[in-house]
Design a protein around this nucleic acid. Structure first.
Length: 112
DNA sequence: TTGCTGACTTGGC
DNA sequence: AGCCAAGCCAGCA
């Protein structure tokens, strides 16, 4: 349980670290890269468990929901995430969502 | 050990 | 367009 969970977390962090500045990925996509399609919720759980020291290494702000919106308002990091993304050049609509067709990212070396 | 919660997704209305 | 219900799996008490 711990072993597989640890591997899952490592895959998630690796996938998130692979997102370039100015681009975003959905939880579902990260879950697929982590080898667990459908485990989108756990992606958020892994990121939520990140220590502050890992924030610099893991651009968690580049992970958004399937609508291109911010899901971190639940943990009080929504404003920060949006500010970070806007600083990277990601534009948000009046509804607080970004266009995944424009900013959506997928690793070029990943299948798909 | 069991069981519940949750930074989500998808299909149907 | 938005809202409801079910499914997914990793942490934590």
């Amino acid at each position: 349980m711990k072993a597989s969970g640890d591997a899952f977390r490592a895959r998630v962090l690796a996938a998130v670290q692979g997102i370039p500045s100015g681009r975003v990925m959905t939880y579902g996509s990260v879950a697929v890269l982590a080898g667990h399609p459908g485990a989108a919720r756990q992606v958020g759980f892994v990121l939520r468990g990140l220590p502050d020291a890992a924030d610099a290494d893991v651009p968690w702000q580049r992970v958004v929901n399937a609508s291109g919106g911010i899901s971190t308002y639940r943990v009080g990091a929504g404003e920060l995430q949006r500010a970070l993304l806007e600083a990277e050049g990601v534009a948000f609509s009046a509804a607080g969502r970004c266009d995944l067709r424009v900013y959506g990212w997928w690793p070029p070396d990943a299948p798909g």
